[in-house]
Nucleic acid binder design. Structure first.
Lengths: 334, 334
DNA sequence: ATGAAAGCGCTAACAG
DNA sequence: CTGTTAGCGCTTTCAT
């Protein structure tokens, strides 16, 4: 263990001078500086982050709290955020909550977030009331559908608009009975509900009624759930000529089920997903999907966080920022 | 900022007693304990991790260093490791290097790894010589193909065996000209080379020659590269009736290219991937793939790390541990 | 331009 | 069972 004093002794200076050199602060003579740097190299000194952090109250890292990494959506988002943090000269650390309430509470606890100078947090089990109860010592930007109190920065994609556009396209291109896979029958504020809202709006805009049987809820957003949703629609004898799946993974499962049922896409049934992941362009058939503007979301979240860390946005009651979504058409639609 | 002394004062005890209560240490009277806990609750006290870490030298976290999160393979692996760490009562933090040499050097630096009590590290740009030059103050377990000095723990999947099994299956079920997508013509020790070694072994075992034209190198392992590899094989007029893609993402791109070319899978061309990701079961056709035993890899890595952190494995020159891989057959093979 | 002193909040070691 | 003392390695402040 090489400490700053060891370097100081080797270079014949005080620890303060070493500190000043190591941190690139001005006011150190050029030859003193080089003597210190040499000692640093020779001894292989590296600062003790815990000590620095205890003294300064800063950590040099920003945190990203996510439910899960296994879903292509979060995987892609974290990649973008990590790269973006890098570009801004910050170090990003990720942690996974597994989407449980207990772990989410733990992850946003005061002690926990203090590992970071700021954090980008995506919650799925906590609501505004939970967050209102908490004290935050660390600047936080929230991402995603889970509602947050207005005093926090919050970035969210245009779930409703994107879903409306997707559904509208299906209805206008001749689909008469469009199912939503991963939708929600009751209107809360989670992702499934918001996307269902867009689905309903598109129907209303065109004066079409929504058949409640075509709103298929799923326990989660895996490939298998998409597969089973379509199988169950078919088993129930419901005829369907369009599927809007609220995620690409669900849509991928849906495509597979349609293939098993001998239904042609897009001739018999059109399909649209949501997330526009990199794999959509390589499925058979290529999947039309809603592009949520992830890159913009990541950039915006980091900018807002940077501002908070610098103390600029303090006290600002900023409303949720919503990025634009748009439909990307491929082979699974007409 | 509520400190331990504030709690101590409020409860009318010393900080040591608070410390003992907070850390669940024995030897505190039951009513003292409850008085302290009440003060903790009232004041909303949470320990300062930096101070604790400075004092004890431990951080309570383990690190996972990965090139990338966007590839389904790493995404799935990190999910397993994160869940596994959780089960072992440890907290896992991830960081991404982006697969660059510079960032990998940074991530395994002494200062950097000291954030953690131990780390699981996957490198793609550093080699054994780089690692030999470094001092490690933190227990580390390495994952993946990049060679590491023997003094470190290293867990790796059976790339050669898995690839041999896949290729063997293709050759034995009637494919006469099997291409390897993402292979390597020169034999180094990276993932592509190892999997190509298995491909060559399978040919040798059956007394078949390998046509060098069928070893298609790719710049990386994305869907697009798999797509383009198959397109270029076809454009070169090479007839191919089997494809072993070294990752599932490459295989997915390959399937798409074959569909575009009007070739039927598996009748005209058989395809096998590697990683056995959750999506393979929902592709059209369902993709046969090599299951690398990720769960075993994650569990093993965590066990080895745990041992090192407890100081048990000190000085042990343990060879690389290789987990078993096996082929999972689906619709893309006969 | 450089240094000395103090202390960030916690816990190991020991004393009572 | 509870308290006192000392110090982890760094940086802030103030002095020279």
């Amino acid at each position: 263990m090489v400490r700053m004093v060891d370097v100081a002794r080797a270079a014949g200076v005080s620890t303060m001078t070493v500190s000043n050199v190591v941190n690139g602060r001005p006011g150190v003579g050029p030859d003193t500086r080089s003597r210190v740097m040499q000692a640093v190299d020779e001894l292989g000194y590296e600062v003790n982050a815990a000590a620095r952090s205890l003294r300064t109250g800063r950590t040099g890292a920003i945190g990203l709290v996510l439910p899960d990494l296994d879903s292509p959506y979060y995987a892609h988002l974290s990649n973008r955020l990590s790269a973006g943090a890098q570009e801004r000269g910050r170090h990003l650390l990720l942690e996974r909550t597994g989407g449980t309430r207990e772990q989410e509470l733990d992850a946003v606890s005061f002690a926990h977030l203090r590992r970071y100078d700021g954090a980008v947090v995506t919650l799925v089990r906590l609501d505004a009331a939970d967050l209102d109860r908490m004290r935050f010592g660390t600047p936080v930007v929230f991402l995603g559908e889970s509602p947050v109190p207005r005093r926090f920065d919050h970035v969210m994609m245009d779930n409703v608009g994107g879903s409306r556009e997707a559904t509208d396209h299906l209805l206008r291109t001749g689909s008469r009975r469009v199912a939503i896979v991963g939708g929600r029958r009751d209107d809360t504020d989670d992702m499934g509900s918001l996307r269902t809202r867009g689905y309903r709006q598109a129907h209303a805009d065109l004066g079409r009624a929504v058949d409640p049987c075509l709103v298929v809820e799923t326990a989660s957003y895996t490939w298998r759930h998409g597969y089973e949703a379509v199988r169950s629609l078919h088993a129930d004898g419901l005829d369907v000529d369009g599927v809007f799946a609220v995620t690409d993974t669900l849509a991928t499962g849906a495509l597979r089920a349609l293939a098993d049922l001998g239904l042609r896409v897009p001739q018999d049934v059109q399909v649209i997903g949501f997330d526009n992941g990199p794999e959509t362009d390589f499925l058979v058939p290529r999947l039309s999907s809603v592009e949520p503007g992830n890159d913009a979301i990541a950039a915006l979240a980091l900018d807002l966080l940077e501002r908070r860390i610098r103390g600029e946005g303090a006290g600002t009651a900023r409303p949720t920022t919503t990025t634009r979504a748009h439909l990307v058409l491929r082979e699974s639609t007409r």
